[in-house]
């Protein structure tokens, strides 16, 4: 990043981006802070779940038909479900499942996607062509349909859901990383690196990768919300996590028929999905605004 002295500012000049940047940065910081705080709460709750929930045994089995479909009360803040499990306990434990899915899918996607993308973008030529055609093939399928198909073909469970979402998600990172890496590859400092005779592997990992990470990280936080939604959708359709795992999408699906009589069974996990997805989005949007792309993501 260059510090632009104010006297260099000229109207109608791209250097004026500095001003919008300053304003954008503040808005970005607020959004980022709000998203980060909510997420931190969710993560802490997920980690401490066995100690902050009244009926931790309900997270897995814990069938108690006597207390089924109780309305929210002091004993059961979010009420109980058809088999008498505490909904509050299951929503908190559900955060563990959702975060597990999000982090697994993102790490796998980044590992595959960014590695391939950076290599393709830096190398260019036929390597880039091959990698990009492969990603195009994956992107040609509608994402949700491809995930659904995979879940149906394989045994539907949590691991399959993670795999199925990853398959549709990594190509986006490849595209993003390839674009950023190609633009970095054309920068003068990469010419200098090449002229020194630095090996391509070192050039990629010491120079291209660190400088490509900012847009990737922004994209990660923007995508996390979408992954939560996709995972919930798969479970909702019975193709993701299976009973008795506490998973928000699955819980909503189980509560949907009862919505008129026992709204709490579906409502609270639904709200949890909303809050988590929204928090990730604010975090990502905040980062993106603060790190205005016009600065070229260089710092």
């Amino acid at each position: 990043m260059t510090i632009i002295p104010p006297e260099e500012l000229v109207p109608n000049d791209e250097r004026f981006a500095f001003l919008t940047l300053a304003r954008g940065r503040l808005r970005g910081q607020k959004l980022f802070a709000a998203g980060a705080i909510v997420l931190l709460i969710i993560i802490v709750m997920a980690l401490l779940a066995p100690w902050i929930t009244p009926y931790p045994q309900d997270a897995q089995g814990g069938v108690d038909p006597v207390n089924s479909l109780l309305a929210p009360s002091a004993q059961h803040w979010f009420g109980t479900d058809q088999v008498g499990r505490d909904v509050y306990t299951r929503v908190v434990f559900g955060a563990r499942t959702s975060l597990l899915i999000v982090f697994s899918v993102l790490s796998l996607s980044v590992l595959i996607g960014v590695t391939l993308g950076v290599i393709a973008g830096y190398a260019g030529g036929w390597i880039r062509d091959v990698v990009m055609r492969v990603t195009d093939v994956f992107l040609a399928f509608p994402a949700l349909l491809l995930s659904l198909a995979l879940c149906i073909v394989l045994q539907p469970d949590l691991k399959t859901a993670i795999l199925a979402i990853t398959v549709t998600w990594w190509p986006w990172y490849t595209r993003l990383a390839a674009g950023v890496a190609a633009s970095i590859s054309g920068r003068a400092y990469m010419d200098a690196v090449r002229a020194l005779g630095i090996s391509p592997a070192r050039a990629v990992f010491r120079h291209v990768l660190p400088n490509s990470l900012t847009p990737v990280i922004v994209q990660l936080s923007l995508d996390a919300g979408g992954i939560i939604l996709t995972a919930a959708a798969l479970s909702f359709l019975g193709l993701g996590a299976q009973e008795p795992t506490a998973e928000w999408g699955l819980m909503v699906s189980q509560g949907q028929d009862l919505f008129t009589t026992a709204y709490w069974v579906a409502l609270f996990p639904g709200l949890a999905i909303l809050v988590a997805a929204f928090a990730f989005n604010m975090l990502g949007e905040g980062m993106r605004t603060a790190l205005d792309p016009r600065r070229g993501f260089t710092s």
């Binding site: 003068a188 400092y189 400088n211």
Partner: peptide, 18 residues
């Protein structure tokens, strides 16, 4: 390549910002 080294116009561009 090492025998011939470039020095570019703009040091800001020619150095890895990180």
């Amino acid at each position: 390549r090492r025998t011939v080294q470039p020095v570019f116009q703009d040091g800001t561009e020619a150095l890895d910002p990180r």
